[in-house]
Amino acid sequence: MNALGEARVYRAAIIGTGGIAHAHAQAVERSGGRAELVAVADVDAGRAREFADKYGVPHAYAGAEELLREQRPDTAHLCTPPRLHAPLALACLEAGVTALVEKPPTLSLAELDTLIEAERRTGAHVATVLQHRFGAAAARLRRLQDSGELGRPLLATCLTQWYRDDAYYAVPWRGTWESEGGGPTMGHGIHQFDLLLSVLGPWSEVTAVAARQARPVDTEDVSMALVTFESGAVATVVNSVVSPREASELRFDYERATVEVEHLYGYTDDDWTVTPAPGQEQVKALWGAERGEGTSGHGDWLAAVLDALDRGQAPPVTTADARRTMEFIAALYASAFTGERVRAGQITADSPFARRMDGTGAPWRNP
């Protein structure tokens, strides 16, 4: 609300008008008038203008700096290749603009810590787009877990088995540590295991492997991890871009029920199932007592962002939340490349895995 008690309309900009930018533009369109897209920017000026025309955006720029200087939006959706996320987010913070950053938010923990420090200094915010946290079923699962209705979490499995062919990696910025920061662990599976972490809470130890099985890339194309959580729960995490039958799956085994979802790029309530333990049929009734609408996507995430901004709070996913997920990624790579179990908090600022996700180097770098 503004000083007159009227609902605030947030002036939004999109920087980078490639494929994912359309999801952001559509989320703004469907925000019920809470946000309006006032400008876009892309290094390809023609593509920026075409995008602007498609969505009825009044201003198109060939550079982010000019857009930020001339339009001073409330929010800037960063939809560029990952290597540009940190410098663009920093420019937004310096301009007092809330940066809404596609995953992964940065290429390393060190870059993310630079943004966290800039947040403290400027008072502006960075939020990462990890939209699967915001689906209605995920919110319901967290409520039932926190209320104790499900009993203790015991075991979880988290699978992102997708397929990306050689043509996908022909795009120059894909498949390198310098431009993407990692393989499917950074850019694909992050959605599922971020949801896993949002449900099960702080992790304590990771043991992992990573491999380059089939794709012509510098990064891994498969990774697997065994994870222990502070709660005592244990989980397996699989990330792949070499799996012809594509699926995204999460399964949580509690004392009183199994709760699971299978989807691909976004879930609805219909994708979730609950299997009560013997004698615990009330759990299924509790789950079915609510029903959410829509798909876990950018729309629900943007609504949560605008709700937070209305309250004067840091929007989700906050840098503190994103750091826990990024630390998990760094620990997975550190375990995979050193052969050691890695504990939470072990990757300090002087660790090579804080500065780059490949740290001491992928084992296939020097065959």
Rank of each mutant, 00 (worst) to 15 (best):
V274I: 13
P276F: 11
T319H: 06
V126K: 12
A118I: 04
I14E: 08
L264C: 08
D221Y: 12
A210D: 07
P82V: 02
A167Q: 14
G299M: 02
A48R: 06
V261T: 12
V43F: 08
P363G: 05
E178L: 00
L67K: 04
A64N: 04
A21T: 05
G312W: 09
A52E: 10
D166R: 04
S147K: 04
A95D: 09
V238R: 12
Q282K: 05
S296T: 07
D253E: 14
V234I: 13
D113Y: 04
W287E: 06
R245F: 07
V274H: 14
E180N: 11
I190C: 11
H85Y: 08
T160L: 09
D270F: 06
A76N: 12
T157Y: 07
V101N: 06
A214F: 08
D269H: 11
T348D: 14
G175R: 03
G182T: 02
T157V: 10
A99H: 13
V274F: 13
V234C: 09
E249Q: 13
V259I: 15
D194L: 03
A45N: 03
G175C: 06
D194S: 15
R120T: 13
R323T: 04
A210I: 00
G63P: 03
D165R: 06
G288I: 00
E340M: 00
T295F: 13
S108I: 00
A170E: 15
A314L: 00
G279Q: 09
A12E: 14
Y254P: 09
Q313R: 03
D310L: 00
F252T: 01
A349S: 14
G232E: 08
E262F: 07
G292H: 06
R291C: 02
A214Y: 06
E94F: 01
D113E: 13
A39M: 10
K284H: 09
L84F: 15
C92F: 05
V126R: 10
E249A: 12
S335V: 01
T185V: 06
E70Y: 07
